[in-house]
């Protein structure tokens, strides 16, 4: 199960692990096709050409496979979708809950994934 967005997707926990293994810098937005999530997908789609050193993916929040993100300790207090997570060399380095602006997203990308 994947989201109907124009982004590349993560469908399973196995694929999630593989993406982290294959890429140094990874941003995954785990959400639904709802009003708090769509703007974040849109931002990711618009900035991915500028941040070629970052792998951008989405993941379906309601898939059991996304427990790999939903149950991560960094997300334990999150009560708003999407859960957006950032990984550096396989380690989660930042996570946000609910809608984010482009400025908030790029601030994390610039801080954690300096080109």
């Amino acid at each position: 199960m994947v989201l109907p967005t124009n982004l590349k997707h993560v469908a399973t926990a196995t694929e999630h692990a593989q993406v982290l293994k294959d890429h140094e810098n990874v941003m995954i937005c785990c959400g639904r096709m709802g009003p708090m999530c769509l703007p974040v997908y849109d931002i990711m789609g618009d900035i991915q050409d500028e941040y070629k050193h970052v792998e951008f993916r989405d993941m379906m929040f309601d898939s059991p496979e996304s427990a790999v993100i939903r149950n991560h300790p960094a997300c334990r207090n999150f009560m708003g979708i999407p859960f957006t997570v950032y990984y550096k060399n396989g380690e989660l380095v930042a996570a946000t809950s609910s809608i984010q602006s482009q400025g908030q997203v790029t601030a994390i990308l610039d801080r954690e994934f300096k080109a």
Binding site: C37, N77, F78, M79, G80, S97
Partner: peptide, 17 residues
């Protein structure tokens, strides 16, 4: 605390409560 208890979308976040 947005997304950590403060929300602006019932259909998005209602099931967390």
């Amino acid at each position: 605390l947005k997304g950590k208890g403060v929300s602006y979308c019932a259909t998005c976040d209602g099931d967390f409560f």
